[in-house]
């Protein structure tokens, strides 16, 4: 099954970070705390990326997700402070949502495990290749006209539009 080596330990640590962070986000009342837990979870994800031989994505994750989005969320939390803190944490449908989430998890898990451990499992001990494409390949792929240049350009457009949109929406209208 699993070898007990540094990879495994790293995996467990990062898993803890991710899941713990996620749980923290969902359960804390204090939003700053929630943001911090989010950052923790994102770190965990970044760690996963490293383990999965995608260093560029790990870097991007930290830079973009944590460095930009999480900070943005902090600002938003600060700008939208509610007056009272006595309000409920969860809304009325927490039970049903928990059930749904639980079932979803079971289903997903089943979808993950069955092919592996099931009768016709195809993933049992499949060898993993060690030859991995690097960041340079990613860079090439993103601008190669036969590959992903179009989505790349469209993504940039999307970002532009989002930026403009965010500015417009959040702008102070008192002029």
């Amino acid at each position: 099954m699993l070898e007990f080596n540094a990879q495994t330990i790293a995996f467990i640590v990062f898993a803890l970070f991710s899941l713990g962070g996620a749980l923290g986000v969902v359960t804390t009342r204090n939003l700053i705390h929630a943001t911090l837990y989010l950052i923790l979870s994102l770190f965990g994800a970044a760690g996963f990326f490293v383990l999965l031989s995608a260093p560029f994505l790990a870097a991007v994750q930290v830079l973009v997700y944590i460095g930009a989005i999480a900070i943005l969320i902090v600002f938003a939390v600060m700008l939208t402070r509610s007056m009272t803190r006595i309000s409920d944490l969860y809304n009325r449908q927490w039970l049903l949502s928990a059930i749904v989430a639980g079932i979803l998890f079971v289903v997903l898990l089943a979808g993950v495990i069955v092919p592996v451990w099931g009768v016709n499992g195809t993933q049992i001990d499949r060898p993993v290749s060690d030859v991995v494409a690097g960041t340079v390949d990613l860079g090439k792929a993103l601008v190669d006209q036969n590959q992903y240049v179009l989505p790349f350009e469209v993504a940039s457009l999307l970002l532009t539009a989002a930026m403009i949109g965010a500015i417009v929406i959040a702008r102070d209208d008192q002029e």
Binding site: V26, S41, L89, S97, A98, V100, A101, G102, F105
Partner: peptide, 12 residues
């Protein structure tokens, strides 16, 4: 993580 996120979306 996904399911926890779902739970958070539905209940926070």
């Amino acid at each position: 993580i996904f399911c926890i996120g779902t739970y958070g979306v539905l209940t926070r």
